[in-house]
């Protein structure tokens, strides 16, 4: 009886290990997939009146304005005078953008490996000012640990990572 119990325990542990090993290969897991820049002009900074918020990455308060980075897309500017009803006044499209900071009306933001400077003295009408080239490195893996979709260089430059469900992931961090 004792032996039976032990055998059962051993079999159960083996099953558990097998299941765990298989999980990585066959089941869907939470992980990250690359956001590729789509081959368009990656240095093109442009301004729109508004844009749908897709994948918010950073928030930033500047006076009465609320700025939100949309991962790898750019920066939304909202008039937040009344926090009960923020109103988008402009969207600055910056390919690959993930972060930024503002001082004295100037916005400094990453544009893949470059830094761009945009004058937002008038937040409703941002003005592209300058570009400092090749100051940031490219990161070819996600910040998070766990599974991720392997980078396929033929799809372009990786400009960010988004959470997703992966089936049969082959890359892990």
């Amino acid at each position: 009886m004792k032996n039976l119990k032990r055998t059962t325990a051993v079999v159960c542990s083996m099953l558990l290990l097998v299941a765990c090993g298989k999980e990585k290969k066959q089941e869907s897991v939470e992980g990250y997939k690359p956001i590729y820049a789509d081959g368009a002009d990656l240095k093109q900074v442009s301004v729109a009146a508004e844009e749908a918020l897709e994948n918010p990455g950073r928030v930033y308060v500047y006076g009465e304005y609320l700025l939100i980075n949309d991962q790898a897309k750019g920066i939304h500017i909202y008039d937040n005078t009344n926090p009960s009803s923020p109103v988008e006044v402009s969207f600055i499209a910056i390919p690959g953008n993930l972060d930024f900071s503002v001082s004295n009306g100037m916005l400094y933001a990453d544009n893949i490996t470059d830094m761009v400077v945009v004058d937002i003295t008038n937040p409703a009408s941002p003005d592209y000012v300058n570009r400092i080239e090749d100051v940031f490195p490219l990161q070819q893996f996600p910040d998070e640990f766990g599974a991720f979709e392997c980078v396929d260089p033929s799809k372009g430059i990786v400009v960010g990572w988004e959470k997703t469900t992966l089936s049969n992931p082959e890359c892990f961090k």
């Binding site: 950073r58 928030v59 930033y60 308060v61 900071s101 503002v102 001082s103 004295n104 933001a109």
Partner: peptide, 11 residues
């Protein structure tokens, strides 16, 4: 003149 970011900021 100067803004305020969150804790995840890299700038």
């Amino acid at each position: 003149t100067l803004g305020e970011g969150g804790s995840m900021a890299q700038f």
